[in-house]
Each structure stands twice: as C-alpha cells, then as structure tokens.
C-alpha cells in the first residue's frame, strides 16, 4: 500500500512539474513570438474565437493575473484542448496528433518491443557464455556502435537500400498514389514503407538492451542462489532462465517502460530522415514552423505518455517482483 501511494504521488508530482514547466516556458521568454504568430493567423482565414481563446490561454497571451491563467491553463489541458495548429490551419492540434499517433505507435512501438526482446535474449546468451566468442564480438562491436549517430547510419541505410538498389521505398509511410484506407493495397504499402525505418531502429537500439542485460545477468550469476541452484543439480536451461535471467531482467523492465513511453515521442530523428508522418515528425515541423500550439500539444502528449507508461510498469512491478509490494514479514 505504501508502495502504491508513493507511486501515485510520483505520478502526480511529475505531471504537475511537467505541465507547470510547459505553462511557464512560453511566459518566461523575452519578446512574444506567439503574439506574432497569432497576428499571422488572421492572414489564414476566419479563426474560431473559442480556438483563439484556447491558444491564448496555452501560450500566455493574456493580461489576467498569473494564477488565473494557470487555472485556465489546467482547464484546457484536462480537456485536451490545445487550440488550432498554425501550420495545418484550420485543423486543431488534437486532430493533428490523432492523425500522426497511429503511425508512430505501430512502427516505433513494434520496434521497441522487438529490439527489447532480441537484445535481452542475446544479452542472456552473451552473459551465459561470457568470455566466449559471441560475447567478445557482440560486446565490443556494440560498445563501439553506441558512438555512431543514429541518423548518420539511417541516412546511409536509406541511400544504399532505397536510393541505389530500390529495394524499399525511400520515405513516407505509404505510397503517395494511394490514400490511407484500411484495405490490402494500403496495408501492404504501409508495411513496405515501414521495413527500413524499423530495421534501422531495431539495429541501433538493440545494443543498449543487450549490454544492459548482459551486465545485469553477469552480476546475477554471482549470486548465492545461482550457486545453490547449480549445486541442486538443476538443468542448465532452468538455471539460466528461471534463476538468472528472471532476476537479471528486473532492472531492465524499468528501462523498457521508459522506452515504451518514449514510443509516443516517436523517433524524432528517424521520422525526419524517412519523412515518416508520426509524432516526432510533427514536433520537428511544428518547431520549424514556429507552430507553438502544435508544439506544446505534442510535447504534453509525449510527457503524458512517458509518465503514464512509467506508472503502469511501476504497478506491474508488484506482480513481477514479490519484494516490492510487501516489505514486511508474514
């Protein structure tokens, strides 16, 4: 119970800090790019007064006292009303996010799960046969590969695979000649477009999981309960998985939770390199176009997702690790 209370407190605390931060930033900056932006809005067409109001509250274009603005801000946020996008006028920010979200969730989500599973399994293998050939090569190669900028690697992958050999499409989420509908033509096109970005993400993020799992597993293998398991004459595979890996994976679960939360932020760099219309791409474009309402909305959604994912895993921990939920004795 105490654990649960603490987790809920952390959830609320984090959300509060992040949202307040988000409230303060536009109000603290010198000059007012937001006001200029709103002036430009009028060149685009009729703007709905409600939406205008929402934008003003979110960005702090107001003469009301700060505490009042703060309350209004919370009111907007709790209703997911972030105003209208400047770039994609007259669409609302919420609409734009809803459009981009599925692409990111499916592609980056799948990649995150795949790379976690692959990396963790290989990490178990590397630790079990530590010092062996696989361990030595994988560990050294991955340690070094973590020094390479992801986008650099992705650019070259795109160049060779798509541009030179035309094996896979170069950019976008589906062929420009079709429109997004749920039929086979669209799905197969979307899949073909997803392969290369997916591969680059999986390859580049797997190493972290592998090394992390390997190191945890190696320290777990030194524990007394592993020695005892061996002395008990248990089968090696049982010891490797039920005793060692099961314990070693615990610290990585938190990392996985964070990664799952980060899924919503998409992969800013990947989506930029492949012009993939997900959340990351949306954020980068919003910033590029000084589309403050969109930027703020996207950032809030991202933070919300990360914090929630973290919270959910904290709750799941109760089932994964019996020590968490009850500290006392029976």
């Amino acid at each position: 119970m105490r654990y649960l209370t603490r987790r809920v407190a952390f959830l609320i605390g984090t959300l509060w800090v992040a949202l307040t931060f988000n409230f303060l930033i536009p109000r603290m900056m010198p000059g007012s790019p937001a006001e200029t932006m709103i002036a430009n809005f009028h060149g685009k067409g009729q703007i709905n007064p409600n939406a205008l109001h929402a934008i003003q509250i979110m960005l702090g274009i107001s003469t009301a006292p700060l505490w009042k603005q703060y309350l209004q801000y919370w009111g907007q946020v709790l209703q997911f009303k972030f105003g209208i996008s400047y770039t994609y006028f007259p669409y609302t920010v919420t609409h734009m996010i809803a459009q981009a979200l599925p692409y990111t969730l499916i592609l980056v989500g799948a990649c995150t799960v795949i790379s976690f599973v692959l990396g963790t399994s290989l990490g178990i293998a590397a630790a079990w046969w530590r010092g062996g050939r696989f361990d030595a090569t994988a560990t050294t190669a991955l340690n070094f590969s973590s020094a390479f900028p992801y986008f650099w690697f992705a650019l070259f992958a795109a160049y060779w695979v798509s541009f030179r050999f035309h094996w896979l499409p170069l950019s976008g989420a589906f062929s420009s000649s079709i429109s997004p509908m749920f039929n086979w033509t669209f799905v197969s096109s979307a899949l073909r477009h997803a392969i290369l970005p997916a591969l680059t993400i999986v390859i580049s993020s797997m190493g972290g999981w592998l090394l992390g799992m390997r190191n945890n597993m190696i320290s777990t293998l030194r524990e007394d309960y592993i020695v005892l398991a061996e002395a008990k004459g248990l089968r090696a595979s049982w010891i490797a998985f039920r005793y060692a890996a099961r314990n070693a994976i615990l610290p990585n679960i938190t990392g996985f939770a964070m990664a799952l939360g980060f899924v919503v932020s998409g992969s800013l760099v990947m989506e930029t390199v492949f012009a993939y219309p997900g959340i990351g791409y949306l954020l980068v474009n919003a910033v590029g176009n000084e589309d403050y309402p969109l930027m703020q909305g996207v950032f809030l959604i991202i933070v919300l997702a990360v914090v929630m994912a973290n919270f959910v895993v904290d709750l799941l921990y109760v089932f994964i690790d019996p020590r968490v939920s009850n500290e006392g004795r029976v």
């Binding site: 007394d224 004459g233 248990l234 039920r242 690790d321 020590r323």
Partner: peptide
C-alpha cells in the same frame, strides 16, 4: 552424471544462506 550426483548424493548449505534462496520463487 554430475547433475544426478548433485543433491541426490551430495547437497550443500551455503555460508550466506540468506541469499541462497531465489527471491522471485
């Protein structure tokens, strides 16, 4: 052969018995 020798004929109780039990089982 070693696996069956262990525990069927030769068992151990470890020094730090506190940590000799798998915490997740």
């Amino acid at each position: 052969a070693l696996r069956h020798e262990r525990w069927e004929h030769l068992a151990v109780v470890l020094q730090s018995g506190m940590n000799a039990l798998n915490p997740l089982m």
